[in-house]
């Protein structure tokens, strides 16, 4: 043991051990990583939206293709069928989407007063938009932007209704990661990837949808064709 090492902090100890382990280092600070994997997808816009829908479906989420104008009606229908009475709304959500929902429903706005955990826990569903979708993996990406809100809003309600526009769908993950650059390095906002409803295969590898997060994920894809 080096003398006086009890005095030195764990930080110094670890850094010193690393330095010793690495020995005489050639200056490798710039070793370049070869990124020969695909970084851009070759899918057309139409292929992307089709693949996205197919892959989200495979996770046992529900998807519906709608036009901008159809959305309010479809949303109304979903709320009726699923028995949604209390709907959580993040700041910045498009009010037009709500135009056909019955006045008897309770709308829980997270603004100006943030909703309590109990209120969220007792709600039926949350409606959000999203930042991006990834076709290849059927992933929805949230970055706490307007229309998405705090992370807890999409966590405690039992149903997550998410609206995505066709032009928000990228082909493969590297494209999405590049678009998130600004979020992580500038605003530092949290990022959540959602691929289907929560699930577990912990009991005899039988997949069960819905453990801790929302048990149902319903995705409306706005596409104009």
């Amino acid at each position: 043991m080096v003398e006086g090492s009890e005095m030195s902090s764990s930080r110094d100890k670890i850094l010193q051990r690393i330095d010793q382990a690495l020995g005489n280092r050639t200056d490798s600070t710039d070793d370049v990583v070869e990124r020969r994997y695909h970084q851009i997808s070759e899918l057309t816009a139409q292929e992307k939206v089709n693949l996205f829908q197919e892959r989200v479906d495979e996770y046992k989420a529900a998807t519906e293709r709608v036009s901008e104008g159809e959305l309010p009606g479809k949303l109304k229908k979903l709320c009726e069928e699923a028995g949604i009475k209390k709907l959580v709304l993040p700041p910045g959500i498009d009010e037009n989407w709500l135009s056909e929902l019955p006045k008897s429903m309770t709308f829980l706005h997270d603004e100006p007063q943030p909703l309590s955990k109990t209120q969220l826990n007792e709600s039926d569903a949350v409606l959000t938009n999203c930042f991006l979708g990834v076709a290849q993996t059927g992933t929805i990406i949230l970055n706490a932007g307007p229309g998405q809100g705090r992370r807890v809003l999409t966590l405690l309600p039992d149903i997550h209704i998410c609206v995505i526009r066709q032009d928000q769908i990228v082909g493969i993950l590297p494209e999405a990661i590049r678009k998130l650059d600004q979020t992580v390095s500038e605003s530092g906002a949290p990022v959540t990837f959602i691929s289907g409803p929560s699930a577990t295969s912990d009991i005899e590898l039988d997949r069960v949808e819905g453990v801790h997060g929302p048990r149902k994920l319903h995705v409306f894809i706005i596409s104009e064709s």
Partner: peptide
């Protein structure tokens, strides 16, 4: 790992965010 194209949830956070988490 789970042999999925993507697992259901991935959370990425950068330090703390006011009013969130």
């Amino acid at each position: 790992s789970t042999a999925e194209r993507m697992n259901p949830y991935n959370t990425f956070w950068t330090g703390t965010t006011e009013g969130d988490g």
